[in-house]
Design a protein around this nucleic acid. Structure first.
Lengths: 169, 169
DNA sequence: AAATTTACGTCAGCCATATTGACATATTTC
DNA sequence: GAAATATGTCAATATGGCTGACGTAAATTT
């Protein structure tokens, strides 16, 4: 009667989830840590302006794809129009983004950066580009291809072609 | 006098920020898209329980490092103790995490998963591990090394050693 | 030409996750 | 004994998501 009941109400477990069971955890965690620091770069800059990460994404993708309709932006960000709404309005009100009625389909509001918006986008890209450059510095051509290919394959299969077109290669 | 004034109040800009200027944008955007879809996997599972991404991170890292003090977890997540507070409390109240007073330093509350917590962690790891495995499938050994090394180098320089120890390689 | 669908915006309320600042408690260290 | 440390908690606030409902203009279908 001194045996601990097997149906005991829980209790702490000491053996860690190990890489032996799931070697993929290395990449899972590296991706977490890398992204954590990767997005921290622009945050410092954004604090200066009164913007957050959401503004960053909008300014970035609009600057990369000037004249894109709202729907396309939503599809990239995978958020709702209501979520985009507030952020976009702020960017328009403060003169970073402009809307132009679609010349062919006049229901559309095509999004363009202003000079100010493009400049902000580039300023936010700068530290991230430096980080990427530094990360690539020690890699062979094949290793670089590996890094790029890995990230591509981490994207949902149905999204890959779209992303390739968006990025432009 | 028909020249447009150079001091015009803004106006839409049509030429996109191009890869020619900043080739690093390829990796910047791939990282965004990859992470976007990478984190979407566990979200479906988490919705079943009443948890969010914050709970995922806590359960994951505690399961990976059973007995870790709160401070270490905060340092991994780079959030404040107040932010961690609610999420951790919920996980403790619902029996996924347990706290044990530090045997050597009794101020510490060492965090352990319960069986339930460990199981949840593994369940959330599963789809991400599958995604990583699929992404690695087509890569050569050198390309894989490249992907891993790239992510490592994307981490803040001062954090890299710490992360290496945490991951265990 | 009328009906329907589409693209977008907006209002309202809600939730999750993060923040800062202040203060409390127990414990360890100097 | 004083100071520093590890942690928790209360309170207020910001950000960025969400759903649902409704409105409008323009395109498309019938």
């Amino acid at each position: 009667m001194s045996e601990p009941a097997s149906h005991e109400l829980s209790g702490p477990i000491s053996d860690p989830v190990s890489l032996a069971e799931h070697p993929e955890i290395v990449m899972i965690e590296l991706l977490f840590y890398a992204y954590r620091d990767f997005v921290s770069d622009p945050d410092a800059v954004l604090a200066t302006f009164d913007f957050g990460r959401a503004h960053h994404r909008v300014v970035h993708f609009v600057s990369r794809h000037p004249g894109m309709p709202v729907a396309d932006l939503l599809d990239i960000l995978k958020i709702t129009k209501q979520s985009l709404g507030r952020v976009l309005k702020q960017l328009i009100d403060t003169g970073y983004i402009e809307q132009v009625p679609g010349p062919v389909d006049r229901r559309q509001r095509l999004l363009y950066p202003t000079a100010k918006g493009r400049a902000l986008s580039l300023r936010l890209t700068e530290p991230q580009a430096r980080r990427v450059q530094a990360a690539f510095a020690g890699l062979s051509a094949e290793e670089r291809r590996g890094a790029e290919h890995f990230l591509r394959m981490m994207i949902d299969a149905e999204e890959r072609d779209k992303v390739t077109k968006l990025i432009g290669r």
